[in-house]
């Protein structure tokens, strides 16, 4: 069993070598944050971490930095013992697209479905892109965890559904 420091150092080597561009930092002693500048690096980098058996996918967090910044951010958290490795990718506000991890990590499916319905991110290769949490009649194009979400949309939508 590797200790936390060794895990983080190995992960840092993997993510800062090769030809991908990353910025790494340690926000807390047991955490490594990796900012990816190229989306196409995401899948090979995760494969790299998996090959070295560096942790399991804990969860995927979506962040909305607000319409004024026009940026969404997706965080992939990997846990190994005490160590936490977070891969961060930025996405544009309009038409955000991510590759699905389902082929390499089947357990990613519920996280990706949640991400897609809550933030409106399209996941390429997601086996079941249907709603996981939101109702079937949820209005299209309304994403509740976006900063600009306005609950008034639902009031109009729900009133329309009611029989006269």
């Amino acid at each position: 069993m590797m200790n936390t420091e060794l895990i983080l150092q190995t992960a840092e080597q993997i993510v800062s070598s090769w030809d991908w561009l990353t910025k790494t930092n340690r926000p807390e002693p047991h955490r490594l944050d990796v900012r990816l500048t190229k989306l196409s690096d995401l899948v090979p980098m995760i494969v790299g971490l998996r090959v070295k058996r560096l942790g399991y996918l804990g969860t995927i967090t979506g962040l909305d930095h607000g319409p004024e910044n026009g940026e969404l951010e997706v965080l992939y958290h990997f846990f190994a013992g005490q160590a936490v490795i977070t891969l961060r990718v930025s996405l544009p506000y309009e038409n955000p697209v991510l590759p699905s991890l389902c082929d390499i990590i089947p357990a990613a499916e519920p996280y990706e479905r949640e991400l897609s319905e809550m933030f409106g991110i399209t996941l390429n290769g997601l086996r079941n892109p249907e709603h996981l949490y939101l109702p079937e009649d949820w209005p299209a194009g309304v994403y509740p965890l976006r900063q600009d979400f306005d609950p008034a949309v639902l009031e109009i939508h729900n009133k329309k559904e009611l029989p006269a």
Partner: peptide, 9 residues
Amino acid sequence: NDRMAVINN
């Protein structure tokens, strides 16, 4: 599990 949506009218 569910936590998030259904917004009460």
